[in-house]
Design a protein around this nucleic acid. Structure first.
Lengths: 237, 237
DNA sequence: GATTTTATGTACGCTGGCATACACTCCGCT
DNA sequence: AGCGGAGTGTATGCCAGCGTACATAAAATC
């Protein structure tokens, strides 16, 4: 962090910390590269590091004791993970893996524990993010219960798009099927529907968003509310 | 709150606030009775009051713009609602309705906003609860995606049981079907399965838990992890 | 006691997504 | 160039849960 200018931080949360508190935080932040597939948080293990992504996307996956897995939500430069560290917790129920590679600033859990009680604005910012993330998970739960695969896929693609700079997402049907907790052929089928409507363009290992607005219309009520909650509590993504 | 002894408060969060902070909070708390069906928080409207339940259960329901509804989780004397008020928010994405009637202490949103910045232990306690509630929602999402109706019903009944004193729950199949986002006959069917295993006893408008341990076994990995997270972050329920 | 309302039991046809399997195609590697 | 693995397209049989409808039964109301 030495020499990094505060406003240039691409992580939205860090960028919003006032200067007096940011001094304390900057001292313990370290930049890291996170290649695709890196597991930055393991479920049900002692938390090692806390991550503030500057680019890339992490998938936040709930893992049950019997091995069942499903994505709860995703985190990019608008948030941090694991969230439990933001309130003084030491264990995460979620696994977080880098679905799209990127950079992050990281701090040791111990540093976070020291910083939280003495930096109230920072603490409140993290708590606000946790609340907005809870909204995101709520909609994941709603969508899992009430919407079909194609609509859920549209929502998922939009959430990726929000956290990326371009229109290209490098992912396989197989990975998406894990995230949506459906069969891989169901994802293939759903992509065909979105392609037929000219909303996306799918190649081997790559998806290009062609019509963002159309995708939003297709996703309908499945997309949007959690994003509003984030804007209310924190600001523009 | 005049004359109420602090340790006698049945709400778990209020009971854990240290005396020096509790003084400030007690001044603005008011007891209320909450009959069955009371909607204590409306979705997407300005928050009026914050509730700390002492008894009863509130269902926290996500409502999409197209009217789709599904339960995100439930709150009893172990928590508070609406959660967004706990970090300074003024609007809730969730509706909360009293599924089992009870009592609560309540404060105006304005009082909450005043109290949060000056009472750090209280603020952190609320943030911890939000994190544990996020864990609860995460498992709702996982269960909606991966488990069958009977197992989800078992989880739901266990969560009710945790928040009640006896073994009786006054609910209709119709209400449960709304909460689980399934058809009402699917609930009837799932109850028959649980009754066949002698785990519960179902009458018109009433369910009695006969075998708590057996229900937990039946629910399997669908139940337990969020409850652990609560214990880690806050303490016994 | 009779009537209405509410809650539960049950049936029927339908379909989305499941589990599984296999073929094809693109890409990297030797 | 040829091989092998990874990613995608597609098929088949199956079933859980859907939408809907209707019958019964228990409570509430008159």
């Amino acid at each position: 962090m030495h020499g990094t200018k505060h406003p240039s931080l691409r992580n939205r949360l860090l960028a919003l910390v006032p200067a007096n508190e940011f001094q304390n935080i900057a001292e313990v932040l370290h930049p890291v590269d996170l290649p695709k597939g890196t597991v930055i948080t393991r479920a049900n293990e002692k938390i090692d590091c806390v991550y503030f992504l500057c680019s890339g996307i992490g998938s936040v996956v709930t893992t049950a004791k019997d091995g069942q897995r499903a994505e709860a939500g995703m985190v990019g430069r608008e948030g941090f993970c694991p969230t439990s560290a933001g309130v003084g917790g030491t264990i995460s129920i979620h696994e977080v893996l880098m679905q799209v590679p990127g950079q992050a600033y990281t701090m040791q859990l111990g540093a976070m524990t020291d910083i939280l009680p003495t930096n109230p604005v920072f603490s409140n910012l993290l708590a606000r993010y946790i609340q907005s993330f809870a909204a995101q998970i709520s909609f994941t739960a709603l969508c899992n219960a009430n919407y079909q695969v194609d609509q859920r896929l549209a929502r998922w693609l939009l959430m990726c798009h929000d956290r990326l700079d371009g229109d290209e997402i490098m992912i396989t049907h197989d990975f998406v099927s894990l995230m949506l907790a459906v069969r891989r052929p169901s994802v293939t089928n759903a992509f065909h529907i979105l392609e037929g409507l000219k909303l996306v363009f799918a190649e081997r290992g790559r998806v290009t968003i062609r019509d963002r607005k159309g995708l939003e219309d297709f996703a309908g009520a499945a997309y949007g509310d959690p994003e509003e909650e984030y804007r209310r509590l924190i600001g523009e993504i």
